[in-house]
């Protein structure tokens, strides 16, 4: 199934990446090539292949419900690009 620049733009939108037309053409061909390679997975018979039990083997104990003081407000916001009154400041949301 060919990947169009429209597909690329939809994915870029989901991934919140600014992609211009020229990039989209390049991505389309690169993704096409990689996904073409990946196509061969469809030939594998995976009936009954489920590794959930393997993943749960040796399941760890959960965390006890005990509150512990975390970071100070200053440390929490230290790396924030913009802050104001103890909050992280972001541009307005326009859907």
């Amino acid at each position: 199934m060919p990947i169009t620049t429209k597909d690329v733009m939809r994915v870029a939108d989901l991934a919140r990446l600014d992609v211009n037309e020229a990039d989209a053409v390049l991505y389309a061909s690169q993704l096409q090539k990689i996904l073409g390679h990946v196509e061969k997975l469809s030939e594998v018979d995976t009936l009954g292949a489920d590794d959930k039990t393997a993943k749960t083997a040796g399941t760890r104990p959960l965390r006890e419900d005990k509150a512990v003081k975390g970071l100070s407000q200053d440390d929490a916001l230290k790396n924030a690009p913009e802050r104001s009154d103890g909050c992280i400041k972001v541009p307005q949301i326009i859907e």
């Binding site: 005990k66 509150a67 512990v68 975390g70 970071l71 916001l77 103890g86």
Partner: peptide
């Protein structure tokens, strides 16, 4: 009504100063 958050040990108390019940995990 737990004392700490679902995936880290920060308090769940309502009404604290902004960003004072946070840690690297929930941030």
């Amino acid at each position: 009504l737990t004392g700490s958050k679902l995936f880290c040990a920060c308090s769940t108390r309502f009404g604290a100063e902004p960003n004072t019940q946070v840690c690297p995990v929930c941030l």
